[in-house]
Computed example of a mutant assay.
Amino acid sequence: MKALSNEGAFNLFLFLFFMVIKNFLKKNNLELVEQIAKGWTSFVYLVKDSKGNFFIAKSLREKANRRDMVERESENLALANSIGVGPKLIETDFENNVVLLEFIEGRIFMEWLFFTPKKNELEKFLKELFDQAKKLDKKGLDHGQLAGKGKNIIVRKGKPVIIDFEKASAKRKAGNVNQLKSFLFVNPHSAIPKKVKEILGPDFDKFLS
């Protein structure tokens, strides 16, 4: 029997992977709207129920220890939810390795920031964001991915929602507040601190304390 080429094997993997999400959707009476993201460890889909309510279905794709990853993400998110942080965890399906989450409609933080919110809007946003980071630190849950381009911070109606707890951990020292301070106010290689300072003006320094 002729072995599959790398391309053929990959296409077979994608087909089998799609069947997994299809089984999950059928089981939960959900409809696929679109695939909205693809990462090293997961595919992320926008789905909806019969009433038109939208959700996020995150299907983990890593071949090894996928059950562990599903369990870890659902446990991390449940812990965050217990203190009012993150999208709501709706369901964890270990059979299909899928996590179903609340859909957060809004802008990625960096996009929102460069649309130049008013000073008071940014101040309120930052206060709420740091309040959430402090709660996570107190709970001992380190998100680990709050920097970069701010892709894991969504702005919904002017308020922050921290997303993607896949690589969070309650086993390492929580440093969410410090990571946010570096990301928003210090990083010399990013345009974000410069933009934040431009909007906040003289009040920029009070967030560093």
Rank of each mutant, 00 (worst) to 15 (best):
F115L: 15
N65A: 13
G148A: 13
A78D: 03
K48Q: 13
L208P: 14
S5K: 04
K51V: 02
F17E: 02
V44P: 00
L89I: 06
V186A: 14
N81Q: 12
M19G: 00
E31M: 06
N6E: 08
F24I: 06
R172A: 08
F207Q: 07
F185D: 02
N96H: 13
N152Y: 07
G86P: 05
P193A: 04
W40R: 10
T41N: 12
N28C: 01
N81E: 13
F94A: 07
K159N: 02
L46S: 01
K139R: 15
K138F: 13
K151G: 06
K151T: 02
I154F: 11
S209E: 15
E95P: 01
K119C: 05
G175D: 11
E95T: 10
I83V: 05
N152I: 04
L16R: 05
I154N: 03
E75G: 02
D164I: 00
K88S: 14
F43G: 01
F24V: 05
S169M: 07
Q132A: 10
L14G: 00
Q35L: 12
E7S: 12
I153R: 01
N28A: 01
L79S: 14
Q132P: 02
P87D: 11
K119I: 07
E105I: 03
L16T: 02
L46E: 05
E111A: 14
L146K: 04
E73N: 05
E121I: 02
D93L: 12
N53T: 12
G106V: 04
F55R: 01
N96W: 10
F55M: 04
L14P: 00
A57F: 09
D49T: 01
V99C: 03
T92I: 07
V186E: 15
